[in-house]
Write a protein that binds this DNA or RNA. Structure first.
Lengths: 162, 162
DNA sequence: CCACGATAGTTTATCCTTCAACTATGCGCC
DNA sequence: GGCGCATAGTTGAAGGATAAACTATCGTGG
């Protein structure tokens, strides 16, 4: 089996450590606003969409969460009056989630705090080049992930009792 | 307020998307082994430590998790017989967590699968330079995080009702 | 030597996520 | 046109994470 080289190992460790720290920091900074990062992501995607409306599954794909999780999160946000569930006009199964005016006001207020946080913990910490490089590399990672037939064999687990 | 430039925005989005995807992929690949990524990280750190032993808090810092979370995770792993809790010799409050032989065997078996997964989703997707660049950037992010007095004022929330 | 605050870890309740099962609609097809 | 399978989304139960309160030990200063 191919192990990782010293340098690969270092990079991989840095990835794990930094992403954990960054996610924690961003979450913590948003907590004052009373939303988690993943709730914020949902609201944020909605706010950028045409008319503040998106199909549940489009949303799920955008924020890389399971359908189920989006359903639950949306329910929570709906209870707070930030979001509304309406049937999809063209597909009887579909649901489009819509940002309410209160929801829009909320996201906009969070955005200030959040962007500040992203700057402080990520953007302003790196040079322009470094940040761009990071972005490019991570886009490549995304592309690979999306190209992949994912788990090579779907529900199968390679049965690794050696 | 300083918003993000087009390019900063792109990088930031790439970060969010790729890290979500990558974490999901790594977790899913490990799932066949019956451990989550965070459980694996814990075991893995133990396995690399002197004598397979670490203080709870050292462990928590290494894997960037709350003390509480480490306690819970360790309890779960202890139930499976992979880990053992022993009192710290030098500090009456302390607990050192120790990898059992079964635990070591387990981690080693997981490692194969896991490294393969890291390669497939991250390492082999990038050029050597790109990976090294990514690592360097993320190390900078870590350093910034660690240098920071973190939340500028501890329990205070900036009271953002404008 | 003891009172104080800090540190180490655990606990409990609550919330969030996950997973599997389920409903319902759409789509292709013979 | 109805059978079968895929897709869209929801539900409920079970397990993991978070936060706050709690116990116990340590270290320092008076």
């Amino acid at each position: 089996m191919r192990w990782l080289s010293e340098e690969e190992q270092r990079s991989w460790r840095a990835y794990l450590r930094a992403t954990r720290q960054l996610d924690a920091a961003l979450d913590r900074d948003l907590q004052c606003s009373g939303v988690s990062l993943s709730e914020y992501e949902l609201l944020s995607m909605l706010s950028e969409a045409e008319g503040g409306r998106l199909r549940m599954s489009a949303l799920a794909d955008l924020i890389v969460q399971s359908r189920s999780r989006v359903t639950h999160t949306a329910a929570r946000l709906e209870r707070r009056g930030w979001v509304r569930r309406t049937p999809a006009p063209d597909d009887g199964r579909g649901v489009v989630l819509e940002l309410t005016p209160e929801g829009r006001a909320a996201v906009e207020s969070f955005a200030t705090v959040h962007v500040e946080s992203v700057r402080r913990h990520l953007v302003d910490v790196l040079s322009g080049e470094q940040l761009a490089g990071l972005g490019a590399a991570l886009q490549a990672v995304s592309r690979a992930y999306e190209a992949d037939p994912d788990t090579p064999d779907p529900t199968e687990c390679p049965t690794m009792e050696a």
